[in-house]
Structure formats: C-alpha cells, structure tokens
Design a protein around this nucleic acid. Structure first.
Lengths: 254, 254
DNA sequence: TCTCTCAATTACTCCGACATATTACACGGC
DNA sequence: GCCGTGTAATATGTCGGAGTAATTGAGAGA
C-alpha cells in the first residue's frame, strides 16, 4: 500500500507559480484527474468507443477515492468527452460529440502535441470570425473602447511581445475589440480559441525572434476601427490572423 | 419528513419519451439538479457574485444527498457558471466567464424566456459563420456530400417543415453542409447554436404557418455548392440565416 | 439452427457520515 | 488606525454500503 503514484496525490501537478495560474488544472484532486484523463483522450490515447477502467479499478490504480474519480468523470461528461452507463462502463464518445470549443478541452488538446489538422481548423475559424468582429467593432466602438485599445497599443510598444507584459497588452487589445462588438457570443468564442492558441505559440516561441514587427499591423487595425471603416478593419484583422497562422505554423514546424 | 419536493426526486423531470430525448436533462439525479440550477442562473435569477446556498443547506432543502449536489455543482463549474471556494461558498461567476456556446448552457438559456439580446448575438454569429461554411463547402464537397444533401432536400419537400420528419431533414441538410467543410471546429460551433435555436423556434411555432416556402432558398444553396461556386453559396446561405432570424423574431414577438 | 425470454452479473448511482484543508472575518496587539 | 493572528464556517476528500439499471449468456421454444 505504498505505491504512491507519482503523477497525482500531493506532489505538484502544476500547482506552481506559472503565469496564467488562476485556476490551473490540478488545484483540486478531481481537477487533476480530469486533466490527466482529458489530455489522454484528446491526444488520442483512447479511441472513440473505448471503455475506461471502471470506478473501482481506476480508483485503486491511482489510489484515489471513487468519489474523486466520479467527480472527474462528471467534468468530462459535461464536456461531451465520455458517457457513463451502468454495466457498460464509461466510454469515450465519438469526436463529433466533443465540445471542441470548450476552453478546457482546447487546453487539453494543446497540452500535448496538438493535432495539425485541428490547429488548421481553428485558424480557419478565426480567419472567419475575427475579421467580422473587427468589422462590427468599427461600427459600434465608443470613446472608451478606443481609449483602451490605444493604451494597450502603447503598452505593446513599450514592452514588445517578447515579455509577458507585452503579451498581456496584446490580449487586452484584442479583448477590447471583442468587447466593442457588443456581442457576448462572439466574445466567448474568440476568447476561448485565442487563449488556447496564443498560449501554445508563446510557449513554443520563447527565445525565438518574432518573424516581423507586429506593431504596424496592429496600428492599422486600430486606425480602421477608430475611423469607423468596417471594410478596412476587417481586412487589417485578416492580415493579423494570417500572421498568427504563419507564426504558429513555423513554431510547430508545419 | 414527507416534504416530497415536487420538482425533483422520482416524478418526471422529462424522463419521458419526447423526441430529442437521448441525454435529456434529468436522466440522472445530479443532472436534474444541474438543469434546475443552470436554468435558474441563465434566466437571471442569480446575479453574478450571488452565493448559492451551501452544500448542507441546499441538500437539505431538496432532500438530496450532498454527493448529488456536489456533482451537479461540478458540472456547472465545468461550464464556467459558478466557482466554489471554502468559506466563501459557491458563487455565480460574471457572465463573461460563462461558456455561452456550450450546448447545455445554450439549452438552459433557451429553456425559459431567452434574453432577446442574446438571441440577436447568436444570430449575428450565425450570419458570420454559416455563409462562410457554405463557401468552404462549395470548395470541398465531394459526391457523397452532394448525394446526402440532395436526399435531405427531397425529404424536406415530401414532409414539409411542419412535421418532425421534415425538420429532421432540414437538420440533415445543414449538417451535410457542415460536414463538407471538413472543419470539426466549425461543425461543433454551428451544430451547438443551431440545435438550441432551432429547437425553440420549432417549439414556439407549432401550428403557426411558415411565413414563406423555404424550399427554393434551400435549393439555391444546394445548387451553388454543387456548382462549386463559393460566392453564390455564401450569399444563398446568408439569405437562409436572415429568414431564420425573421422567423425567430416573429415567433418571439420581437 | 435460430430467435426470444429471463435471470444473474456487473458497474454505475445515490447516500450519509467522517476527517481534512482552506479561508473569510473578527478580534486583539502594535 | 493598521496589521498580523486565531477561530469558525465551509468546501474538499474519503469511505463503504445499499439500490438500480443494463448487458450478457443460458435456456426454452419455434
């Protein structure tokens, strides 16, 4: 009874002080289990239809209580990854039942080596949505929105994207645009995708030099929105997404 | 101890044999609780920051065990609706933390009287995404996709949208288009929104006559996709979304 | 030989109690 | 008046057992 499974139970499951922290994966025990299972499923270790080890067996393996395991399964069920039925066990659902746009699912997908095709799908979606968002923002922004964008741009210039502060300013800038659309659905969608994608790229980039100075492209978006020119805003945002795609592609070696 | 709370415990919480069934809200006890709390939150009965009654108190009120309550809370937490912290209780998170595009959250939002502004947001998003999807479908569809769309169209003509079979065919048609985009993220997004929105409209419509024969508009989308004409496909799909919006607006009396 | 029925098995579901960890809040010292 | 400390309230993690539903496989009938 001293198996002491190393990947859970007590020792750090990312408890530490990384930047995004807030509500990391493993703050709670069942959260750690859900993270573990979620990444395993997203990385393709289970085929759809596969049966996870049952409550009792699994709980014994990891030396956690059945309750903890059940709460973790509950989370996965809520995100459409698995389904539990008496006698049949807990099965992995087919991919089309997954809530691929759920922030946690996205995070799990990007935790390992993300599927190239899936990344392309996400960028295709961004290329559709974000320019449209910029178009709406150009029509609906008010003085406050513009002020926040301007401040964020200034901060980006000061810190550059190589620093955490600079990337935070970048996020603020994009968030300000999303807020200016006055559309919560749009905001939720883009924030989820952006968070997952940007996090990985910033992670993989690290010391790598940025391929091109991104400030002028951001300024162009800002100018178009400030001028209230929807078409120009959409076009400029399209350029930004393309750049992000290039960036990610080269970071992933695709 | 014979309080016998009527809304849970035993009597039907939608257990019955309605069409969409599959994984209804109340199949499991904690599912019923999550549904109850979820609709309450989405309908604005709790303000962000409000504290739900604690585990013990709540479990006593509804005469369910704490485990059931906790698993329900786990589901809501997974969808970003609430956050639990020791001593502080379980608080409703601000709206921008909610996963508004989660199928369950959408269903809960539409369970009561949906917020007009939110419906408008969703249709705005559809108006952005669905024409783009049709554009991609026109570029990537193969013979199989076209055959499925054609069959669905034929079924729509036979049954009309007044019948369940006709609406199923409508769903099949749109799903076939989404499938033809070869983009899982796009598919997940549109399927979630479409399911929620269409379900309510079809529910509220009931005996009401449809404002206009929708078949020709669908045929126009099909023709454009079959011809491989992206621009025409996007334009025709835009018309379809506009019609759905009109339809929904009149059904909701807005 | 095939199909249908039924019972046993199996795994999830729900329960209530206990022990622990965390943190909001108030109290007291500085 | 401010700040650090202590306590109480509350969620978290754990456990074992009773209940229930679905699958499986055997047996009976066609």
């Amino acid at each position: 009874m001293v198996k002491e499974n190393p990947s859970l139970h007590g020792d750090e499951t990312e408890k530490g002080g990384n930047g995004r922290a807030a509500r990391g994966p493993g703050r709670r025990l069942h959260g750690a289990i859900a993270h573990k299972l979620g990444t395993a499923i997203l990385s393709g270790q289970y085929q759809p239809g596969d049966t996870l080890s049952g409550e009792v067996a699994f709980a014994e393996e990891l030396e956690v209580s059945r309750s903890a395991y059940r709460e973790a399964i509950q989370v996965l069920t809520a995100k459409g990854l698995v389904e539990s039925r008496p006698k049949a066990g807990t099965r992995v659902l087919p991919r089309n039942r997954w809530n691929l746009l759920d922030p946690d699912v996205l995070a799990w997908a990007f935790a390992g080596e993300p599927d190239i095709q899936f990344v392309r799908d996400l960028f295709e979606l961004r290329a559709i949505v974000e320019p449209a968002a910029a178009r709406l923002a150009a029509q609906r922004r008010d003085k406050d929105d513009l002020r926040i964008m301007k401040d964020a741009l200034a901060a980006m210039r000061r810190h550059t994207l190589a620093t955490e502060a600079g990337r935070a300013a970048d996020r603020d800038f994009h968030n300000a645009i999303l807020n200016a659309t006055r559309n919560d659905a749009l905001l939720t969608l883009t924030a989820s995708i952006g968070a997952a994608v940007n996090w990985t790229t910033q992670f993989k980039q690290r010391a790598r030099a940025l391929p091109r100075n991104p400030i002028p492209d951001h300024v162009r978006v800002y100018d178009a929105i400030a001028a209230g020119d929807p078409a120009a805003a959409a076009e400029a945002m399209g350029v930004l997404v393309d750049l992000a795609l290039e960036d990610t592609a080269s970071a992933m070696g695709g």
